[in-house]
Design a protein around this nucleic acid. Structure first.
Lengths: 274, 274
DNA sequence: AGAATAATGTTGATTATACCACAATAAATC
DNA sequence: GATTTATTGTGGTATAATCAACATTATTCT
């Protein structure tokens, strides 16, 4: 009755490659993980043939492994997670990626070697961390796990992670413990992002806990750099962080509106446009 | 008589990728190929977002490129042409990996839902974190960035990262700040790994800063679980962490030597062997 | 051995992706 | 500037992959 011969476990042509006995699920999981790591990407069909089981079983395995973060699940197959390669982080928020890269590059150029700095939460600040990769002997304190991972690739950097509650969404660390931790330091440069900048220069964000962390960074940095792409201009958010007058330089990708430029000029805030 | 000017590959790519203007198809093809080569596998959705075009356009690109044999087409995405078709089964040192999985699974079974726990540095403790993935509503404090990443995949978990100096090698957080941070909490379960266990039950490690963190975890946990594979038995390391009498349970993959079992029995340390 | 448990296979409904043909847009040529 | 050509977007439809539930088979435990 076995019409689907290709999936029949008893078919000698498709039996497991090391032994004719069915291997345990745990063994299979380990081998799947290894295959995925070697190949980069494999289809479910391929794995089903390799282990002489139905695709459904492989799907269950892959669901499990991806739940544990060991591999990444795709439609029709599985690929490497971000365990060994630092390639993939949150794929969702890579809008304006190129703009952010330009902004970050520009900001990194204004930061010398051998300095200490804060870097807080935000995709743009993450871009700055990447742009700093060829700097030398930096000491960086961050409440962003992605930034920590990026910077830790450079052996020369001393990376200090601020403790606190981990926000699942973006790897940000927040809470009272984070604030207290940040307050222990006083650094040369503070790199902060922002969710919105009002026309009068008010800096706005959505999460008050993140604002408090940013506040602590501003208060404990000798120079403060604000990085923000043009979508942040005029954008409204709930929580007030402060005013743009408090920062020393704004890095962005488009000329801000005239009123904002006026405010910045009066407060002697440097403006860098990519 | 412009015959096939549009597909001319010699046409110099003058359009910069930085501009928000739409890039030429040829440029996009080149960049897609590069991205695929770097990442190993990317989804069509991802590429569509990257280039701000519809998935359909990406599909046309991928069909073209795969027709030329430059990349390989998959359901939902594209990957590298697998130049190395050989499914070389490499080293067998995943043995330890598999054993760690077993140990971790066993330990996870002894941990209820809705509890708080410390998890410290070590590959075995990372395995425990993975094994905990289907638990519910755990609060975990860790000084291991990998553990933090693993646990943050579960939305139900409250993950607290202990601050401190980041060790590049393994993503561990160490230093005085880490100790102070850990001391702020008192949790139900402490999960610790170890580099060596002497025959008399002395727990040993290599890095004194890591030992101090583990010490703090033991002192502030109501129950302490030690996870260690059999390679740790009798292995020597420099720094003394404490004695096995201080832990409540040992999870391992092989029966320890008789003297050690005696010590554990006297101190009423539970022994779990996978 | 027999019962309990875990793992796998099977099926049909559901969802996601792919394809096709044509309309709309942008670039290029005259 | 109008026309031609290439390129991309937009539906509708086909196909593949996923999921959920249950039946079946291995495995484990007493």
């Amino acid at each position: 009755m076995a019409e689907h011969a290709s999936h029949n476990p008893k078919d000698p042509a498709v039996r497991a490659n090391t032994s004719n006995k069915r291997m345990s699920p745990a063994d299979r999981h380990g081998r799947i993980q290894k295959i995925v790591q070697n190949q980069g990407f494999v289809t479910i069909e391929y794995l089903a043939r390799q282990f002489a089981v139905t695709p459904q079983t492989i799907r269950r395995d892959i669901n499990l492994l991806s739940k544990e973060g060991l591999i990444q699940r795709f439609h029709g197959g599985a690929g490497m997670g971000s365990s060994t390669e630092n390639v993939a982080y949150n794929e969702r928020k890579i809008m304006c990626l190129e703009e952010k890269r330009q902004i970050a590059k520009m900001a990194a150029r204004q930061i010398p070697d051998h300095v200490s700095l804060f870097i807080n939460i935000g995709t743009t600040t993450e871009a700055v961390a990447r742009a700093l990769s060829s700097h030398r002997r930096l000491t960086a304190i961050t409440n962003n796990l992605n930034v920590a991972n990026i910077l830790s690739n450079n052996e020369q950097f001393e990376v200090i992670v601020a403790g606190g509650l981990l926000r699942h969404r973006d790897g940000g660390l927040i809470g009272e413990a984070t604030i207290d931790f940040i307050r222990q330091f006083r650094v040369d440069y503070g790199i902060i992002g922002i969710s919105g900048i009002d026309v009068d220069g008010t800096l706005l964000d959505f999460d008050y806990r993140e604002v408090r962390a940013a506040r602590a960074i501003i208060d404990n940095s000798r120079k403060v750099f604000l990085v923000a792409d043009h979508t942040k201009f005029g954008r409204n958010a709930m929580v007030r962080l402060g005013n743009i007058e408090e920062v020393h330089a704004l890095f962005t990708d488009r000329q801000p509106t005239a009123p904002l430029v006026d405010v910045m000029a009066r407060a002697e805030v440097d403006l860098f446009v990519a």
